[in-house]
Design a protein around this nucleic acid. Structure first.
Lengths: 115, 115
DNA sequence: TTATATATTTACCGATGCTAGGTAATACAG
DNA sequence: CTGTATTACCTAGCATCGGTAAATATATAA
């Protein structure tokens, strides 16, 4: 689905942040939301997403809850307390990185930046 | 030197952009410049930098020129014409990515963004 | 002489995401 | 009724990218 080699390292942050905003999402929903938000420019592949979700769950940052919808099983993910802390941490890490990237790539301007 | 897993995919862009600005740089110089610009927060490791430089050279985006400085060999890199085109391309790609990241991670604000 | 800074190189490793396939139910078109 | 698309999840194996750590070599300071 995606040929974007830049996502590396930010997928976890994306997942966590979306779950911070939505409280409860299932995998497929996440892929669709990201597609929507970026007008189809970033597509999270299932091969990347599901292993990432499982890893975050194994780390105790997410919990799951299975729901039956039209005879179809849906697995909802939501943040644990550790997960909530981690969002903040990951977000500021990413913000810091983008700021540094800016310092390297745009030597002229050094304004405040928020993400 | 670095534990930043976010650089993935942007190292080439960093190298190319620095060479666009400086016209001629050697490897060690690049690591030091990045360190300076980011107050030591981003450190390009040699194990990442030199292979990347060799790859860019093999792709015809960079050319090299050896200089003797104090009995020490220094390998200067500079952009080829293809390299100059590639900087523009890579920069807008990265900018586009950061914009998309913003749309995902900061659902509130959608201002113009430059990098 | 030992450590530090400059300067380049490379073999091997680890993390992360992608490809491509499987499973399964629903819905719609031919 | 069959094929295709959509929804929804999972995973083995691969590819890419950067990091670790070591080697090599010179100069300089402690």
């Amino acid at each position: 689905m995606s040929n974007n080699n830049l996502i590396k390292g930010s997928l976890q942050t994306i997942i966590l942040k979306l779950l911070e905003e939505n409280e409860k999402m299932y995998g497929y929903e996440i892929t669709q939301r990201v597609k929507e938000l970026t007008a189809g420019e970033i597509k999270i592949t299932e091969g990347a997403l599901y292993p990432a979700l499982h890893k975050l769950e194994a780390e105790g940052l997410l919990t799951t809850e299975i729901q039956q919808v039209d005879n179809r099983v849906r697995k909802y993910y939501s943040l644990t307390k550790d997960g909530q802390k981690e969002v903040t941490s990951k977000m500021s890490e990413l913000q810091g990185f983008v700021e540094n990237l800016q310092r390297i790539l745009s030597p002229d301007l050094k304004p405040g930046f928020n993400i």
